[in-house]
Design a protein around this nucleic acid. Structure first.
Length: 210
DNA sequence: CAGCAGATTGACT
DNA sequence: GTCAATCTGCTGC
């Protein structure tokens, strides 16, 4: 049987915006310390385009304790604490020294959905289980311990899933980056049209036609 | 060292 | 719609 996992080459391309779009429909999975696997179809992403992107933690090649892993060769996880309480999960792409990242903003649970719902304190099937970047990490059991982890390893990885027809892919400006000047308006958020698990659906109407 | 903003979420008016 | 929870890193005194 051939591996369902995406291989390293998928993540090493030079265009993180394209990778962000192509991750829609893929399946993000994690394994808990006790061996339980949870995962969901990626239905919403955002691209953060490195040193030249004012919205990125790596703008201007800034380096801090938490952003060090952004400069590693992809694919590795970059997980950081937002507002002091939410873990946000990113996939670092490209070669060493180029801090490209894709934020995974929403999943549709497909493996271990009951456990994902329990971690969130919601009923299985509730579309909010992994809707929003903080919810994604919580549903998958991801925290700072995963930052720097290779996505080719045993704790967190991405599987092939199925391809999404181009006419089902919508884009918009990224959420919550109004501080980023002209980069705030770049259409680097991608989501699957009409999918119930996509976050901030109140903002999506204007973009449904792409 | 104090103050503040932030790639968010959920509870409450 | 408003607001608090609570950590990291930046700015300015």
């Amino acid at each position: 049987m051939s591996s369902r996992r995406l291989s390293e080459s998928f993540f090493l391309g030079p265009d993180v915006v394209e990778i962000s779009r192509k991750l829609l429909g893929k399946v993000l999975c994690s394994r808990s310390p006790s061996g339980r696997i949870t995962g969901g179809v990626i239905v919403e992403t955002e691209a953060y385009a490195g040193a030249g992107d004012r919205a990125s933690h790596a703008f201007g090649n800034r380096r801090t304790g938490r952003t060090a892993v952004m400069y590693r060769r992809g694919p590795v996880a970059y997980v950081y604490l937002c507002y002091g309480l939410h873990w946000l999960f990113n996939i670092i792409t490209n070669v060493e020294g180029v801090p490209h990242a894709v934020l995974v903003r929403a999943l549709q649970p497909v493996r271990g959905a009951a456990l994902m719902a329990r971690r969130r304190g919601l009923d299985k099937g509730d579309p909010r289980v992994a809707s929003g970047p903080g919810a994604v990490s919580r549903a998958l059991g991801i925290s700072s311990a995963h930052s720097g982890e290779s996505l080719l390893g045993r704790r967190v990885w991405v599987e092939r899933g199925r391809s999404i027809p181009p006419d089902m892919v919508c884009s918009s400006r990224r959420i919550g980056v109004s501080y980023a000047g002209r980069d705030a308006r770049r259409p680097w958020r991608f989501f699957i049209r009409g999918n119930a698990c996509v976050s901030r659906r109140d903002l999506n109407r204007n973009y449904e036609n792409n």
